[in-house]
Design a protein around this nucleic acid. Structure first.
Length: 568
RNA sequence: CGGGAAGUAGCGCAGCUGGCUAGCGCACCUGGUUUGGGACCAGGGGGUCGCGAGUUCGAAUCUCGCCUUCCCGACCA
C-alpha cells in the first residue's frame, strides 16, 4: 500500500481527551477515532490489526475443533427473561422498540442465544462435545467507558461456548480452550498471566481471567512470586497471620470517648493516636434489599465480591445515608456493632482475633474503646470478607503477595447447567435418558487486545507492534521522492516485496525524512526499509528494526530474500 | 448516579477582569526552495467561539439552564 493513497491521519500532539498511553498512541497513529463516548471507528491501520488478531484467534480456535458461527446482535427480550439475566443485567442492556412496539435489545453476550440454538438443534450425546464460537460486536451500556478502547460500549469480542455431557467432558473442553487462549495471547505478543477469578453474573463454579500487567489496567490481581499463585483480588483468599481464637490481650472495660466531627478511620486513628489496625469499621450494606452490617479491621478494604458470595446475594450496595441513620440511629461515621439491633452482623476473620478495639458508638460524635466481640455484641458469623493487600500471605504458600494493576483480555468460565436448564438444552444419553448439557463459555476482548498489546509494547517514539499483528510487516521509507534514483529504487523494492507477499507500506509521500521516520515509529511498523540518496546510488538499502534499532545494510537485489528470512 | 475539570478552525491551544475586523502553532491548498529524525519563503482557504435564554447600545468574554467530553468514585462479562 502506498502511504500517499492511504487514510493514515497521524497527529503530532496527544489528543486532549486521552489519558493512557495506548489510547494516545492509537489516536495519534491514526488507528482509531472517537465518534462518541465509548464508541470508536477503526481506520485502515486499526482495522488491519484487528483482522490479524481475529485470524490468529480463528486458527487457534479451529485447531481445537471449535466451529465458527455468527449469532444475531438483535435479541428478543423473552430469551433473556428465561434465564433471569434481563433483570440482572438491567441498565447494561441496550433496549429499544421496533415499529410494532416490540422490545428488542442489542446483545451484550450470547449465552442465551447460543444455548437456545443448541437446544433446538442438538438432540443426542453423540453430537457432543460441541464448541461454537463467533467474533462479533457486543453492546453494553457502560456506566463509564474509558481509556480509549479499553472499556467501550461497543466492542468486538470473540465468544465461545462449549457443550458437554458431564463435568468430566467439560473439564476436557475447558482445558482445550485454556490452551488455545494461551497460544492466542502468546502469538499476539502479550505478556499475560492466567488468574483465578470470580464468575460473577455469568454464574458457574470455576473461572479464569487472562490478565496483562499494566498501570492502565482496571483490575487488580494478587501474584505470588514464590509459588506462581495468581488470582483476582476479588477472590484471593486472605489468610490469617495468626490463628483465629480468643485474643491473648487482657480484656479491658468498654468506654465511650468523645469524637466530635470525627467520622473517618484516619481521623479517629489520628485523634486517639492509635493505628488503623486497632479500629474496626462497620459498613452498612444492602444485600438484595436486606440491611447487613459488615465488620472489618480499620486498615482493611471491603471485598464486595466476597461479601456478595458469602451472603449469596444478587445485588450488594453500600446503604444510603437514610438507611444508615435508621439502622444505627446515628449519623454516618459513627456506626458500630454494639447495640446494633435487628441487623445481621457478619465479621471479617481478621476482626475475630482482635481485642480491645475501637468502633463507632451508634451515637453522634462518639466512639467506643476496648470493644470485645463476644462480650459486647453478638457475633456468630465470621468469614473472609476483605480484599487481599500487598504483603498479605499467599493463600498457597504463605509468602507475601504483590498486588498489581492489570487489563483483563480474556475470561473463561465453567458454567455448568445454568443456561441449559433454563433454556432446555437437553440431549439423550446412551441409556435414552435426558440430560442437560454441561456448558463452558470463553471470551476474548478483541479490541481490548490492541490496547493491551500497545500498553506493553511502546517507547517514547510510539507503538512497537509484534510482527504477528502489525498492520504492515515492513515500511519502505523513501527519503526523497524527488531524487530519481531514490524513487526508482524504492519503487523497485515495493514491487518486489509486494510480489513476494510481504505486507509492505510504501511511504512515497513528499515529506521530509524527519516526518517519515517519526510517523513510521509512531505507527510501529516492525521493519523499516530506508532508501536514501547516497545508498540508492550504490543500490544499497538500510533495514532497521523498530524494537532494537539495529541497522543492517542490504543490497537492493537481496532485499526480498533478506525480508523473507526476517519474516520467517 | 456523586465529586472534579473542560468545550474557541481538522488537531493542540491563547483570548475571557464587558469593547474594534476572533488569534497563534500544527495540518490543509497554490507557487518556489528543500529532503538521513516532526524544513523554509510567499500567498491562500477554513469559525453558528458546544446549545438556548437573559443582562447590555454592544457578549467568545457576565448570569442562568441544558448538552457533550475527560478524570476520580460507584458499577463492570
Amino acid at each position: 500500500m502506498r502511504w500517499s493513497k492511504s487514510l493514515i491521519p497521524t497527529l503530532k500532539e496527544d489528543p486532549q481527551d486521552a489519558e493512557v498511553i495506548s489510547h494516545k498512541l492509537m489516536v495519534r497513529g491514526g488507528f482509531i477515532r472517537k465518534l462518541s463516548s465509548g464508541v470508536y471507528s477503526y481506520l485502515p491501520l486499526g482495522f488491519r490489526v484487528l483482522e490479524k488478531v481475529k485470524n490468529i484467534i480463528r486458527q487457534e480456535m479451529d485447531a481445537k475443533g471449535s466451529q465458527e458461527v455468527l449469532l444475531p446482535a438483535l435479541h428478543p427480550p423473552e430469551i433473556w427473561k428465561k434465564t433471569g439475566r434481563y433483570d440482572i443485567l438491567g441498565d447494561v442492556l441496550i433496549k429499544f422498540k421496533d415499529r410494532h412496539g416490540r422490545e428488542l435489545l442489542l446483545g451484550p453476550t450470547h449465552e442465551e442465544i447460543v444455548t437456545d440454538l443448541v437446544a433446538n438443534n442438538v438432540k443426542s450425546y453423540k453430537e457432543l462435545p460441541l464448541i461454537l464460537y463467533q467474533i462479533q460486536t457486543k453492546f453494553r451500556d457502560e456506566p463509564r467507558p474509558r481509556f480509549g478502547v479499553m472499556r467501550t460500549s461497543e466492542f468486538i469480542m470473540k465468544d465461545a461456548y462449549s457443550f458437554d455431557c458431564d463435568a468430566g467432558a467439560l473439564e476436557a473442553s475447558y482445558k482445550k480452550m485454556y490452551e488455545a487462549y494461551c497460544k492466542i495471547f502468546e502469538r499476539c505478543g502479550l505478556p499475560f498471566i492466567p488468574v483465578e477469578a470470580d464468575p460473577g453474573m455469568m454464574g458457574g463454579s470455576v473461572s479464569h481471567e487472562f490478565m496483562v500487567l499494566s498501570e492502565a489496567g482496571e483490575d487488580r490481581i494478587a501474584v505470588c512470586l514464590k509459588c506462581k499463585y495468581a488470582a483476582s483480588v476479588e477472590i484471593a483468599a486472605c489468610k490469617l497471620k495468626t490463628k483465629a481464637g480468643p485474643a491473648k490481650e487482657k480484656i479491658l472495660p468498654i468506654a465511650q470517648v468523645d469524637t466530635p466531627g470525627i467520622t473517618t478511620i484516619e481521623k479517629v486513628s489520628e485523634l486517639l493516636r492509635v493505628g488503623a489496625e486497632k479500629l474496626v469499621k462497620t459498613l452498612i450494606y444492602k444485600a438484595d434489599g436486606n440491611v447487613v452490617a459488615v465488620l472489618l479491621r480499620g486498615d482493611h478494604e471491603a471485598n464486595e465480591t466476597k461479601i456478595k458470595n458469602y451472603l449469596k446475594a444478587a445485588a450488594l450496595e453500600l446503604a444510603d445515608v437514610k438507611t444508615i441513620e435508621d439502622v444505627t440511629r446515628a449519623p454516618v461515621g459513627f456506626s458500630g456493632p454494639v447495640g446494633l439491633r435487628n441487623v445481621r452482623i457478619i465479621v471479617d476473620n481478621a476482626v475475630g482475633s482482635m481485642a480491645n478495639f475501637i468502633t463507632g458508638a451508634n451515637k453522634k460524635d462518639t466512639h467506643l474503646i476496648n470493644v470485645n466481640a463476644s462480650r459486647d455484641f453478638e457475633s456468630k458469623e465470621f468469614a473472609d470478607l476483605r480484599m487481599i493487600a500487598k504483603d498479605d500471605g499467599c493463600p498457597m504458600c504463605g509468602k507475601p503477595v504483590d498486588v498489581k494493576q492489570a487489563i483483563e483480555i480474556g475470561h473463561t468460565f465453567k458454567l455448568g447447567t445454568k443456561y441449559s436448564d433454563a433454556l432446555g438444552a437437553k440431549v439423550l444419553d446412551k441409556d435414552g435418558k435426558e440430560l442437560s448439557a454441561v456448558m463452558g463459555c470463553y471470551g476474548i476482548g478483541v479490541t481490548r487486545i490492541l490496547a493491551g498489546v500497545i500498553e506493553s509494547n511502546n517507547d517514547k517514539d510510539g507503538i512497537i507492534w509484534p510482527l504477528a499483528i502489525a498492520p504492515y510487516q515492513a515500511i519502505i521509507i523513501a527519503l526523497n521522492m524527488d531524487d530519481k534514483k531514490v524513487k526508482e529504487v524504492s519503487e523497485d523494492i515495493y514491487a518486489k516485496l509486494s510480489g513476494a507477499g510481504v505486507e509492505v507500506l510504501f511511504d512515497d509521500r513528499n515529506e521530509t525524512a524527519g516526518v517519515k521516520f517519526k510517523d513510521a515509529d509512531l505507527i510501529g511498523i516492525p521493519i523499516k526499509i530506508v532508501v536514501g540518496a547516497k545508498n540508492a546510488k550504490k543500490d544499497i538499502t538500510e533495514v532497521k528494526d523498530r524494537r532494537s534499532g539495529i541497522v543492517t545494510e542490504v543490497a537492493v537485489k537481496d532485499i526480498e530474500t533478506y525480508l523473507k528470512t526476517l519474516l520467517g
